[in-house]
Measured scan of single mutants.
Amino acid sequence: MQRVNMIMAESPGLITICLLGYLLSAECTVFLDHENANKILNRPKRYNSGKLEEFVQGNLERECMEEKCSFEEAREVFENTERTTEFWKQYVDGDQCESNPCLNGGSCKDDINSYECWCPFGFEGKNCELDVTCNIKNGRCEQFCKNSADNKVVCSCTEGYRLAENQKSCEPAVPFPCGRVSVSQTSKLTRAETVFPDVDYVNSTEAETILDNITQSTQSFNDFTRVVGGEDAKPGQFPWQVVLNGKVDAFCGGSIVNEKWIVTAAHCVETGVKITVVAGEHNIEETEHTEQKRNVIRIIPHHNYNAAINKYNHDIALLELDEPLVLNSYVTPICIADKEYTNIFLKFGSGYVSGWGRVFHKGRSALVLQYLRVPLVDRATCLRSTKFTIYNNMFCAGFHEGGRDSCQGDSGGPHVTEVEGTSFLTGIISWGEECAMKGKYGIYTKVSRYVNWIKEKTKLT
């Protein structure tokens, strides 16, 4: 034993070699072989497995989906700052455009905790909710729209109204504003409101030439003092309507412009014939205590009207009353817009006519005020429907199939267009061939041609 100890002390290297040989010859039971080890760690190889990531292109799944990435790591994937920024906006807080917040056709661009709407022409605001041009839906104005110097929408209202708090709607500024039905039992019968379409306001006024200088022999019209197929109006439903009495009662109609003036057809009036105007009328054979009678003290036909040349060209006249009318729910003026808007309103496509005229061709006159909704007829169809001249200051309205029309005794009465609950004068009943005849239409004086003249002559002093 002493000898062994001496050998170990003198030859430590020998001992180490012996131990190493023993270990190498022993069977290893701690580690699995290569094949079995792979069965336990069965993990798919990654895209760049075996390579240094710093030297390969980034992978979106590896960089940002398996674990949260930084902007720089995302930049490695896209290799483009702009594309990385677009991805980053949604990656950080989701897609803010998912709810489609942009209105009126706006395009949404996502941002971090926010979004941006790219608005089409005519709109602005956070969600493109603000109209900035009158060309689109009248700028959301209830009545009139004008573009300011910086191309912003400025709404306005006709006389007797003021802008509401929203700067879009119009509200009454006087007790009985024009064009409004205020009798409670008839307010439910107000005709369907007309909503502004998209309009090209630059070209809204037709490029028409008034044929002022045409000389033409007097034409022989049949029954051209021209509501057939209409309905009984309720008291106060058309408070701007008046009836004219002269040699015979209810020979023509008219509309209240203001307390002192009536507008009617020029062919209705004769110099030297006494005319009485009755406002607030409903049943011409009954006294309903809503009527107001006034005498006409002055007749002003349009300066281009000449019955000797043509009885229905420039067929418009103004009547001055001896005493002002007292405005109330049964006696209310009709609204008159400017030339541009009167023309736009007419193009809405349908209007209402009213009167006490004959209820059928050569038949009896109506006792109760009649009204009828009539569609506008395109000019080409209008011209083809008659052998008589249709001037540019006239328009056609009615039904091709016949059966409904204005008729004798309705002449001078109103053709009105309702705009968001307020009625505007767009025409004056003038003439036609018979009444409600198939293929024939009622012919009306186009008020847009005469609004400046009306307003100039009827100013209240």
Results as ranks from 00 to 15, higher is better:
Glu165Pro: 07
Gly412Ala: 13
Glu259Asp: 06
Gln219Asp: 07
Thr16Met: 15
Leu318His: 01
Lys152Arg: 14
Lys274Ser: 07
Val227Ala: 11
Phe238Tyr: 04
Ser169Gln: 07
Cys108Ile: 01
Arg3Asn: 09
Arg75Leu: 08
Ser187Lys: 09
Glu340Leu: 10
Arg226Val: 08
Met394His: 11
Gly106Val: 00
Asp338His: 05
Cys97Ile: 01
Leu103Val: 07
Ala337Gly: 05
Ala308Asn: 12
Asn343Thr: 09
Pro12Leu: 15
Val4Asn: 11
Gln167Leu: 13
Asn166Val: 01
Leu163Gln: 03
Glu456Asp: 13
Cys268Arg: 00
Ser114His: 08
Lys446His: 04
Ile336Val: 10
Gln237Ala: 08
Asn166His: 02
Lys362Tyr: 06
Gly21Asn: 09
Leu372Val: 12
Lys39Met: 11
Ser99His: 12
Asp405Gln: 15
Asp110Arg: 08
Val451Cys: 07
Thr458Ala: 05
Gly246Trp: 05
His289Tyr: 05
Thr381Phe: 12
Phe78Trp: 10
Phe399Thr: 13
Phe71Asp: 15
Gly105Tyr: 03
His303Tyr: 14
Ala173Thr: 15
Asn36Ser: 11
Thr133Ile: 09
Gly246Gln: 05
Ser365Tyr: 11
Glu433Val: 06
Val451Met: 03
Asp249Phe: 05
Tyr47Asp: 07
Gln57Thr: 05
Ala279Met: 02
Glu79Met: 13
Ser430Asp: 02
Thr16Leu: 14
Thr389Phe: 10
Cys69Phe: 03
Ser255His: 02
Pro101Tyr: 02
Glu420Ile: 06
Cys97Trp: 01
Phe360Gln: 08
Gly50Asp: 15
Val451Asp: 01
Arg404Tyr: 15
Ser411Glu: 11
Leu327Glu: 03
Asn283His: 11
Lys234Ile: 14
Phe31Gln: 15
Gln408Cys: 12
Trp356Gln: 03
Arg191Gln: 07
Val199Trp: 12
Asp410Val: 13
Lys455Ser: 05
Thr215Arg: 07
Cys252Pro: 01
Val257Thr: 01
Lys89Tyr: 06
Arg180Gln: 07
Ile443Lys: 03
Gly229Trp: 14
Asn127Ile: 05
Ala317Arg: 01
Cys145Pro: 01
Ile299Thr: 14
His289Ala: 05
Ser49Thr: 14
Thr426Val: 00
Trp118Gln: 02
Ile390Gln: 09
Lys362Cys: 03
Glu76Leu: 08
Pro333Val: 01
Thr29Trp: 05
Val92His: 08
Ile334His: 01
Val374Arg: 04
Cys252Glu: 00
Gly229Asp: 13
Lys234Asp: 11
Ile297Cys: 05
Phe251Leu: 09
Gly409Leu: 07
Pro301Gly: 04
Met437Val: 14
